[in-house]
Amino acid sequence: MTMTMTETPVPLAPTTLERAVAHLSLWTGTLLLTLPLRHTLRCAAGVRRVLGRRGATVRQAERHHATIRLAARRHPSRIACLETAIATTLIAALHGRRVTLVLGARFDPTELHAWIETNGTIIGETNEHDRELHRVYAP
């Protein structure tokens, strides 16, 4: 299966409501990550399944990802790829859309990474990696 990657363009400024939902998603995702990872992933998959009625388009997923990245600038704790991917999954679900949360790894040396996909497109990632990512988890 061939995957394409998109780099998040600079979106129009999010509305106040979109920013509030992004901050809510970040806080929820950060709190979920205090649980064991299997519980965090189960919760994110449950929210995605229950609230995400339709698959997100690439444009919608890019906008959600960019809004989360913008909100992460003001978040008091560390926001890395896993936090961003979980929060993007949550914000998409709150908008009635579904994205796929993917966990992967590169080897030699080992590197773990998390990202989201929709319609076979990786969202918010550049194609500048020198080693292939191997999918470990994707519900």
Rank of each mutant, 00 (worst) to 15 (best):
P14T: 00
A87F: 13
E7L: 15
G46E: 15
E125A: 04
R38K: 08
V102C: 12
L51N: 02
R19W: 06
V50R: 15
E117N: 05
T15K: 03
L90P: 03
R98F: 04
A66T: 04
L41M: 04
D130M: 02
H113D: 10
M1E: 08
A114I: 09
R98T: 08
I68H: 04
A13G: 04
R54K: 09
Q60S: 08
D108Q: 13
E7R: 15
H64C: 11
T110V: 14
I68E: 08
N127L: 14
I86G: 05
L94R: 01
T100G: 10
E62N: 10
T110F: 15
T88C: 08
L90I: 15
R97K: 07
V10L: 15
H23T: 03
T30F: 13
G120P: 01
R63V: 00
V99M: 02
H64A: 13
H134F: 12
R42F: 02
A85D: 07
H113A: 02
E111N: 05
H23P: 00
T110E: 13
G52Q: 07
L35P: 02
E117M: 07
T57D: 11
W115K: 01
C81T: 07
G96C: 02
H129A: 11
R19H: 09
R131L: 04
E62P: 00
L101E: 06
L26A: 01
I86Q: 05
E18A: 13
A72L: 09
G55Y: 12
W27L: 12
A45P: 03
G46Y: 10
A92F: 01
R54D: 10
R69G: 07
R53V: 00
R73W: 07
R59E: 14
R48V: 00
P76I: 04
P109I: 03
A105I: 15
H129S: 11
E62C: 07
R106N: 08
T34C: 12
M1S: 10
H129D: 13
L32K: 06
L37T: 10
L33Q: 14
G46P: 10
L17S: 09
A138F: 01
L24D: 06
R131Q: 11
L103D: 04
I116Y: 11
G104M: 10
L12A: 15
